[in-house]
Amino acid sequence: MLLEQLADRSVSLVMTSPPFALQRQKEYGNLDQDSYLDWIMKFAEVVKRKLRDDGSFVIDLGGAYQKGIPSRSLYNFRLLIRFVDELGFHLAEDFYWFNPSKLPSPIEWVNKRKMRAKDSVNTIWWLSKTAWPKADVSKVLTPYSDRMKKLLADPAAFYKPKLRPSGHDIGAAFSKDNGGAIPSNLLNVPNTESNGQYTAGCRLAGTTMHPARFPAKIPAFFIDMLTDPGDVVVDIFAGSNTTGWVAEQGARRWLSFELDKNYVAASVFRFLPEELPDTKRLELYQRLRDGESGIDLSKLSSSPTLFDVAIAG
């Protein structure tokens, strides 16, 4: 495990989306639910040692049904409890990623028998090594609603301060422009990307795209909130390397680990400038596919970058 080679207490954030514990085998690899918990725990144990004392471990987990019956599995909740009870992690906060564009699934219970609503929410556990991880919600404020913009423009005309039934005193503090609203722990992010440098590059190379990519807004939210420029961000199940690309845009140092050489090689398309000729794109893809590592892209891009992707054993 290459994660073992990192120095203890050197990582600010591990942001990852591992293969889920699904009943039907996927091409990117996944284990049955009984084996899954022990498998993930081995990684989480190492993650805890590598995190700084103010570091965070954020893990995205999709839901699943029990085999052959329309009852939900509790594997993602059992995993959370084991993280806390056995490894000593703190649950800083539970997040829920709502993907409104997700197709109806599972087919048997939703489409065929029409017994269940479609599964469109993933659980995202924000875990920390101590009770006081580094975090700044002001970095991930959301746009104000039209109603709030009217209030900010003319508080006296739009709203009269009063005590709400809950006991909150809605007064002058709520008419202050803070640059945006505090986000909720429900992340409404559609996963609809069908065009982009990564997908275009995969088509150019005639290679298979990773089938379980999460949208850049998910890792961006946590990277912005939990780290600063120069901090180290790690993804231990990188896939198409969305996390690494987002970390690069935010001037974080990053490492991404992925078993499949083809996924590692194809992820280079995320980092290449649009004006780069197709012949050069293919050359870089082929060099990575053939096992070359540490490819320096700084001369190809306006912003220096080191393509620091490792093939994890």
Rank of each mutant, 00 (worst) to 15 (best):
F237A: 05
A205G: 04
I218G: 08
V246H: 09
D8K: 04
G250T: 15
I124A: 13
G29E: 02
L288A: 05
F98E: 14
K48R: 08
Y96S: 04
W245I: 07
L61I: 06
A205E: 01
K139F: 04
M115L: 09
N185L: 07
K114S: 00
K280T: 05
V110Y: 08
L284N: 01
E193W: 02
S17H: 00
F269V: 01
S128A: 14
S128H: 07
G88R: 09
K150F: 12
S17A: 01
V58H: 12
S298A: 03
T130W: 05
Q286V: 12
E292D: 07
R253E: 03
R72S: 15
S166Y: 02
G68A: 08
I223D: 11
N262K: 13
V233K: 00
S101P: 14
K118P: 10
V47R: 01
P70R: 01
A310M: 08
E108L: 12
P100Q: 05
L22D: 03
K26Q: 09
L6T: 03
S73A: 03
P19E: 02
T130I: 08
L91P: 00
V84S: 13
G196C: 04
L80P: 02
D228S: 14
D228H: 13
Y144Q: 04
P104M: 06
Q5M: 11
L226M: 06
R213V: 14
S120H: 09
M115R: 05
E292K: 09
R252W: 10
K114V: 01
D32V: 13
I182Q: 10
K176M: 14
I182L: 06
L186I: 14
I311N: 09
K129Y: 09
Y144I: 11
K150H: 10
I59M: 15
N262L: 12
P70E: 02
I218F: 08
I59N: 14
L31Q: 07
V47Y: 00
L297I: 02
L87G: 05
L103N: 13
Q5S: 15
T16I: 02
M148T: 11
K114E: 01
A92Q: 12
F307S: 01
L127N: 02
R78I: 06
A135S: 13
N111R: 14
H210Y: 04
K102M: 13
M15Q: 13
P183A: 05
S145T: 06
L152P: 12
